[in-house]
């Protein structure tokens, strides 16, 4: 499945000027938001005011993005499902504090991220490396070769992403994978727009150094070599 338009459009993602990697075309977990952030925020505002039916609109607008984000982060669909449910219930409980005119997207992502981190801290973290290995697809049908190659590439990218410093990886994922604007990502991470921009850019440069062959056909320095061959 193709990535959402925001993955292809740096300007839409906050105008970083960072050229997006072509793996956006091969991502398998990209999602498309059926409603604009403004629509969902307006629905959340109505829900805060007591319009009970508006919560379904909030769910429809946010759930696919949150589920995609949490699935990519946890590599566990059951866990992602549980976190989505917890996130929406937290939003439901806190609806009375929703500020009219505020953007609901950064709030929802911040809640989801906090719940996920708390879950990890309680010792529920999966061994991501192992999951990557288990998920490695194998071609059994010649017609599926392209898809398998794409999935293998996505796995490779995920592996390289996992090796980045957390601050850079998270900034990169929120802006480039989830399609949040720089301002939204800055809110989620509790930092400044320029810090997010810098982190995402550094992540991109680091990925470009090890995945150059994917980007422009030039041989890339492998991450193993880059780390002195110790990995």
């Amino acid at each position: 499945m193709l990535a959402s338009p925001s993955l292809h459009a740096p300007a839409a993602a906050g105008g970083t000027g960072i050229v997006l990697l072509p793996w956006a075309r091969v991502r398998t977990a990209a999602v498309e938001a059926p409603r604009s952030s403004a629509d969902v925020s307006a629905a959340m505002s109505r829900y805060a005011g007591g319009d009970e039916s508006a919560f379904a609109i909030v769910y429809d607008g946010l759930a696919p993005r949150l589920y995609g984000y949490l699935t990519r982060q946890t590599r566990d669909t059951a866990r992602a499902e549980d976190l989505v449910q917890q996130t929406f219930l937290q939003m439901h409980r806190a609806r009375g504090s929703f500020v009219s005119g505020a953007d609901v997207v950064p709030w929802a992502f911040a809640i989801a991220r906090r719940l996920m981190i708390d879950g990890f801290r309680r010792g529920k973290r999966e061994v991501l490396e192992d999951a990557d290995e288990r998920d490695e697809p194998h071609a059994t049908d010649p017609a599926a070769d392209d898809l398998v190659q794409a999935q293998q590439l996505a796995t490779r990218i995920r592996r390289e992403l996992a090796r980045l410093p957390e601050t850079q990886r998270v900034a990169f994922e929120l802006v480039k994978e989830e399609g949040l604007s720089l301002a939204e990502a800055a809110e989620v991470l509790g930092t400044t727009v320029s810090a997010v921009k810098l982190r995402a850019h550094r992540a991109y440069e680091a990925l470009r150094a090890v995945l150059g062959d994917v980007i422009d056909g030039t041989p890339a320095e492998s991450s193993t070599e880059k780390r002195g061959g110790t990995a």
């Binding site: 009970e52 219930l89 439901h92 009375g96």
Partner: peptide, 19 residues
């Protein structure tokens, strides 16, 4: 999931903005 979340929310009262 949608039905589950909406049902759970309807079972748990939460204060509106006015409250």
């Amino acid at each position: 999931l949608r039905a589950r979340i909406l049902e759970a929310a309807s079972r748990e009262p939460s204060p509106t903005r006015a409250v």
